[in-house]
Simulated assay, not measured.
Amino acid sequence: MLRTQHFFENPDSPGNVFTDIDDNRARQLLHQEKFDAFYLFNVIGGKSWKIDRKMYLGFFASVNNVFNKTYKTGGFEQARNTNYRELNNDTADGTPSFGSKYYYGYGRNYYINVYLNF
């Protein structure tokens, strides 16, 4: 409801908008966060050997996020302060009581597969 007309409506007087809205401050409060761009370095490889006419031994391995980079993959805003006055009061000191919540990608992880085909 944060990015709907409800944001500007006064809950004490349903159907009426707040009269003390500062358009610049409203734009600032409704500004959506953009995450920083990032790159991940992954290593993937494998090898197989022919043991006899019909038998193969092999392995496959991958290491993802080799440099163990921390990165945000998504998130959500708290929906507790859903109108202009509440959100403006909550963020007035620079630290909102109900800040955004984030999802983070996996750190370094790996996978190893050894197989025998016969």
Rank of each mutant, 00 (worst) to 15 (best):
L2E: 12
L2M: 09
R3Q: 13
R3S: 14
T4F: 07
F7N: 06
E9I: 15
N10T: 07
P11C: 08
S13K: 08
P14T: 03
P14N: 01
N16L: 09
N16F: 12
N16W: 06
V17G: 12
V17T: 15
T19K: 05
D20C: 03
D20G: 04
D20E: 11
I21H: 03
D22P: 07
D23M: 12
D23H: 10
N24Q: 08
N24T: 10
N24F: 06
N24R: 04
R25F: 11
A26N: 12
R27G: 07
Q28P: 09
Q28E: 15
L30D: 14
F35D: 13
F38T: 14
F38N: 14
Y39R: 09
L40I: 10
F41H: 14
F41W: 11
F41M: 13
F41Q: 12
N42C: 08
V43Q: 05
K47G: 15
K47L: 13
S48F: 02
S48H: 06
W49G: 09
W49N: 10
W49P: 09
K50W: 05
K50D: 13
I51F: 07
I51S: 04
I51L: 14
D52K: 13
K54I: 10
M55C: 10
L57A: 15
G58W: 08
F59I: 14
F59L: 15
F59D: 09
F59Y: 15
F60Q: 14
S62W: 07
N64D: 15
N68G: 05
K69V: 10
K69Q: 07
T70P: 04
Y71L: 07
K72F: 08
T73P: 01
T73Y: 01
T73F: 00
T73L: 09
G74L: 05
G74Q: 04
G75S: 04
E77Q: 05
E77P: 02
Q78E: 03
A79I: 14
A79R: 01
R80V: 13
N81T: 04
T82H: 08
N83H: 14
N83F: 03
Y84M: 03
R85F: 00
E86I: 01
E86S: 06
N88A: 08
N88H: 02
N88D: 12
N89I: 01
D90C: 03
D90V: 01
D90R: 00
T91E: 05
T91L: 01
A92C: 05
D93R: 01
G94L: 01
G94W: 00
T95H: 03
P96V: 00
P96R: 10
P96H: 08
S97V: 06
F98D: 02
G99N: 09
G99D: 15
S100W: 08
Y102F: 13
Y102G: 00
Y103Q: 10
Y104D: 01
G107D: 11
N109D: 05
Y110V: 05
Y111P: 01
V114H: 00
L116Y: 00
N117Q: 04
N117W: 01
F118N: 09
F118D: 09
